[in-house]
Design a protein around this nucleic acid. Structure first.
Lengths: 143, 143
DNA sequence: CGCAGATCGTTAGCTTTGCTAACGAATATT
DNA sequence: AATATTCGTTAGCAAAGCTAACGATCTGCG
């Protein structure tokens, strides 16, 4: 059942994801970091020290990609690599205080950009989006 | 009011957009086209013949980027460039029947990938997502 | 009519982000 | 002790985004 509306839903979500990301990318970069970097930094800040592999899995990205993201964050002084004393293969990624601050600023820029767009919806519509957001996040991460 | 939940909503939508796109990209590519190409093709199929510039604006992308996307679609035989008889600067982009067919297939693959994820939500949650989808799309495009 | 300026699409060249394959170092297993 | 596996990195490729600069066309003002 419901095949037709689900077609639409899929298309709309796909389109929305593409266009939202393109729009938000500008805000993110204005704050000094690209989307993927900000996203990775956000995980490091909130989920505490992580190994590079854990971070790659959390971001659903391959290790080489995460190596490069972390290197960029490290060069920017937002993150540090700490070697694990018990297992020398592991690299623990820790946010610096500068990283924490910048993430906060980036989030504000992102929110401004989003709010600007959500303002064009009615309060009732905003509420629907608000309730859908955590569900979408859960669905997106449940790969 | 509601400053706090909006922070969360913004973060969740951002995260969901990033992760959903990464997940859907695989499905899209399995159908033979990347996300941006499929998205552009979809606009051409549904919005009829468009000039390259119109298509770039619809996709919120710069003209050079769209030139490359259209060239790729053209090389794949999914789209054709037609010169406008009244204004020789314009290039009209038209979908071929092969393009229409492939877009249909791509959409199915995308839906499968999405349904697989949405299946983990309750029916009530799916309904919220269904209602939020067009709103998100509207918000995303209202740049 | 004719030329100056705007518009359209393309080319060239750069960056970022994703991937796979291959490797070296370190740990686990047998 | 020898072999497996695991972890992160390096190397190298493709796609998608951008700006800058151009050539071709149209517009519009003298």
């Amino acid at each position: 059942m419901n095949g037709k509306p689900l077609h639409q839903t899929a298309d709309q979500i796909h389109s929305a994801a593409i266009h939202l990301l393109r729009a938000l990318r500008r805000a993110d970069e204005a704050a000094g970091l690209s989307g993927p970097r900000l996203s990775a930094l956000s995980v490091v800040v909130f989920a505490g020290p992580l190994t590079l592999g854990e971070l790659a899995r959390a971001e659903q990205v391959r290790p080489p990609t995460m190596t490069r993201l972390v290197t960029a964050l490290e060069n920017a002084g937002l993150v540090e690599r700490k070697s694990d004393p018990d297992d020398a293969r592991l690299t623990r990624i820790v946010a610096t205080s500068r990283g924490r601050k910048l993430m906060q600023r980036g989030r504000e820029a992102r929110i401004d950009a989003l709010v600007e767009r959500l303002d064009k919806l009615s309060p009732g519509e905003v509420d629907i989006v608000r309730r859908a957001a955590p569900l979408l996040e859960k669905a997106a991460r449940s790969g």
